[in-house]
Design a protein around this nucleic acid. Structure first.
Lengths: 221, 221
DNA sequence: CACGGCATCCACCCACGGGCTGACCGAGGA
DNA sequence: TCCTCGGTCAGCCCGTGGGTGGATGCCGTG
């Protein structure tokens, strides 16, 4: 960990880069090995210099930071720390989706910036506090806690829950029967019980409930 | 924002609290207004003192930090910054789910701790870098990018997409008809087209696809 | 203008889904 | 021992869902 962190600076404004160069240059364990003015150059530099971290602005001509981030991380060229002046959620989200190891606002104190750089270099991730807030809200609202209490599913027996799971994958009764080595009649009883216990009308509503409770989650097959 | 941040310290180890008291006491804009040795006391103190932030350990007797966090935040008594020695994912996740504004490891440098406190007091959120990494992975894997390309839905007309949306909420054809002021026959045609275009057999499978593409998301009604 | 895409509507047919009733079996608790 | 509960199966009924085919009017584009 005592090694020097090699950094590539990417920003279309020369002044910005100069600022960062100053701040980072003062650090013993950080070395700015290259600079780029747009995303395309950034990708090239990352490929040729293989820095530890690319410090990247989002808004840039030719190829924006979000896209450049993807190109760099999908080839594993370097870690990417994305920065922006405004804290636009969508940028942050897209960048992180594209493999960025962090997302900072440019008003971040220089001491924090350096810390963030170290964290990223060592494989961790960093997000500005104000962005974290909204990220968490989104995370928890979407993936974190099932908004509907999954407790309602407790009234089901194991077998019934098993059947519900298959229903929620779009299988018909006959398909479920084949899969579980049962007669279709049995499947029907199970389905019927599931609907009755959960106060549902349809297997359609059963699917909805399965997703809403988190019994099944989007993208899990 | 120049006001003093009033903090309540919660940890079952007196030694730990002493350490934090030292660090925070040295700060001009931070004041430790109370201390608790377990979750139950923490909730009481939060209610009576109404601090800005509760700095809370997870592992505690009587009432653990995760549960205490819920009690405090659901009543809006204070912001909660949760801490732990080990970075157990589940703890972090549960705490954040329960309304915590942040999650720090106890090995966090004291300067960072104070910064985090300020961020939390001002409504932002903070998560330790190493935890952020895994949080992001989970977030992106679960909520971030719809794993199935929502592009398949482009073949649908607006009306058809509208119908699909209602199907995905568990409505029957008659219900959809009422809601859209259409005859049931018309709804059937739309449904039929949706199924044909998306190569689905059932409205059940349509619901699944709606969730898988992110057309509808769990917890959005 | 004529054409194609879209939304709307209708009728017919039939299979699947789901409600209801009743029955059998095995495990486990009273 | 009996009784309950979960799981299995069957037959009956009928409503809904979905396929097919055909019809109208609207709109924008070539």
């Amino acid at each position: 960990m005592g090694r020097v962190i090699r950094v590539v600076l990417v920003d279309d404004q020369e002044l910005m880069r100069a600022g960062f160069r100053m701040v980072l240059g003062a650090q013993e364990d950080v070395e700015v090995v290259g600079e780029a003015g747009n995303g395309a150059e950034a990708v090239e530099l990352a490929a040729s210099l293989r820095p530890d971290v690319v410090l990247m602005d989002v808004r840039m001509p030719v190829l924006d930071g979000v896209e450049a981030t993807l190109r760099i991380t999908e080839r594993g060229l370097a870690k990417v720390l994305v920065m922006t002046t405004f804290d636009l959620d969508e940028y942050a989200l897209s960048a992180l989706r594209n493999g960025a190891s962090g997302f900072l606002l440019k008003d971040t104190p220089s001491a924090h910036l350096v810390d963030a750089l170290r964290s990223v270099a060592s494989g961790d991730a960093v997000v500005s506090p104000s962005v974290t807030r909204r990220l968490l809200d989104r995370f928890l609202g979407a993936a974190g806690g099932q908004l509907r209490d999954a407790a309602v599913l407790d009234v089901l027996t194991d077998r019934e829950r098993e059947v519900l799971l298959l229903i929620a994958q779009g299988l018909s009764n006959t398909e479920i029967a084949r899969k579980l080595f049962l007669s279709e009649a049995t499947v029907k009883t199970h389905v019927g019980r599931v609907l009755a216990k959960l106060d549902l009308r349809d297997r359609v509503q059963a699917v909805v409930l399965a997703y809403e409770t988190g019994l099944v989650r989007p993208g899990e097959h």
